[in-house]
Simulated assay, not measured.
Amino acid sequence: MPGRIQSIERAAAILRLLAGGARGLTLAEISRSLDLPKGTALGILRTLQHVGFVEQDTESGVYQLGGSVLRLGTRYLDGNELRTRALNWADSLAGRSGESVRIGTLHEAQVLVVHHVFRPDDSRQSLDVGSLLPLHATALGKILLAFDPHAASEAAEGTIDLPGFTRNTITDLESLQQEAIEVRNNGWAWELEELVEGEVAFAAPIWDRRGTAVGAIGIRGAVERLCDHDKPRMDQVSYVRDAARAISRELGSTPW
C-alpha cells in the first residue's frame, strides 16, 4: 500500500494554519509553528502561491489563504447546501415532467452532478451523482457557461476542451459564445442530441442570496417525448424554470 506523501501533508498543515490566522502569518511564524526549516516552508509557500492557494502581502510580507482555495471552499458549501435545498423540488420536477432530473455545479471546467432523480417509471437507470459532464455539450453546462463568471472566463481564455460527441455538438469557441448569449437572453438552455444521440435536455440557473449562479437544474429524456418537430416542448421548459426559481428562493435569492 502506498505511503503518505510528506510534502502534501506539510502543505495541508500550512493551509490549516493560515486558515486559523485572521491577519496572516510571516514565514518565521509558519516555520516555528510547524517546526519546519524556513527553506522548506518557503518552498511550499511559493508552490502554493503559484497555484493560487496562498497570497503574500507585498508590504508586510505575511501570508494568507488565496482566492483559489477560498473558491474551492465556497464551491463545496454551495454544492452541499444546493443539494439539501433542492431535494423536494427535484423530486417534484421529476414527477411533473416524467423525466430524470439532474442538478450540477461547476468543477474544473466541467459539470459536477450533485443530485440526480430517476425518471419515475420502471425503466433501468444508473445513478449519475458524482459524474462529470462537458460544459459545451449539455444544457446544464451551457447554463454555467452563460451565468457562472468563472466558467465564462475559462471559455473566453480558450482553456475548455470542445470535443465532438455527436454531429450536433458545438466544437468551436465562437459558436459556443454565441450560444451563451442566447442562453442569457432566454434564461434557460437546451441541448438537442449534442451529447447523446436521441436525447434532449433542458436546464435553468439556480441563484443564491448573493445573486450568484451556484448551479443548474435540468431534465433529460428522449427526443420524441421532449420535442415537437425538433422544437422544445415549452411546457417542459416551464417546469424546469419553475423548479429553478423555487430552489433559488430556498437559497435566499430575491424573487424575480
Rank of each mutant, 00 (worst) to 15 (best):
D172F: 01
S33C: 06
R46K: 15
L65Y: 08
L144F: 00
G98M: 02
D172H: 06
A180D: 09
R46P: 04
S100Q: 15
Q64Y: 12
L135H: 04
V240E: 07
A13Y: 04
G215L: 02
D91M: 08
V183S: 01
I5Q: 09
E174C: 10
G95T: 10
I170M: 06
Q64P: 04
L192D: 13
E199Q: 11
Y63D: 12
M234W: 05
G61Q: 11
E224N: 11
Q178N: 14
E191Q: 06
R23N: 15
E157N: 15
A222I: 05
V129N: 09
L87P: 01
S175H: 13
E157T: 04
V101G: 12
G43H: 07
D148R: 00
L173R: 14
D122F: 08
E179R: 15
I206K: 02
D235P: 01
A203R: 01
R32E: 11
T212Q: 10
R16L: 12
G3I: 03
V129G: 07
R23L: 14
L162A: 00
G21E: 14
L25W: 11
V69S: 05
R119Q: 10
A146M: 03
H50G: 08
L162E: 04
L173V: 08
A146L: 02
H229W: 12
T47K: 13
G104S: 02
A90N: 04
D78Y: 06
S97A: 10
R233H: 07
L140Y: 01
I14Q: 04
A244R: 03
I44L: 12
H115F: 10
G98Q: 02
G52Q: 05
R23C: 13
D228F: 11
Q236K: 12
D121E: 06
S253L: 03
A244D: 03
E174G: 07
A151S: 04
L93M: 09
D91P: 01
D172N: 14
T58G: 09
I217D: 00
F147P: 01
E99P: 05
L70A: 08
L173S: 13
E99L: 10
A155V: 00
L226M: 15
T138A: 07
A189E: 01
E55N: 10
A90V: 03
S126I: 13
E81D: 15
H116Q: 06
L173E: 09
I8R: 13
L45A: 05
A13H: 09
L226W: 02
R16Q: 09
G218R: 01
H150S: 13
G3R: 10
S175R: 14
V111A: 02
G3K: 07
G3Y: 07
R245P: 04
E29M: 07
A22F: 12
G215Y: 00
G66M: 08
S60T: 15
R209E: 14
E224R: 10
G198H: 03
E193P: 00
S153V: 06
G43S: 09
D57V: 14
A151I: 01
A22G: 10
E174R: 15
E191S: 14
A86N: 02
S7M: 09
E154W: 07
G198V: 01
E193S: 12
P163N: 14
R46A: 14
I247E: 00
Q110D: 12
G79A: 14
Q110E: 13
D242G: 08
I14M: 11
I170Q: 08
S238T: 13
N168A: 13
G215V: 10
E193D: 08
L17G: 05
S131M: 12
V214N: 00
L112I: 03
S60K: 13
T74Q: 14
R249E: 12
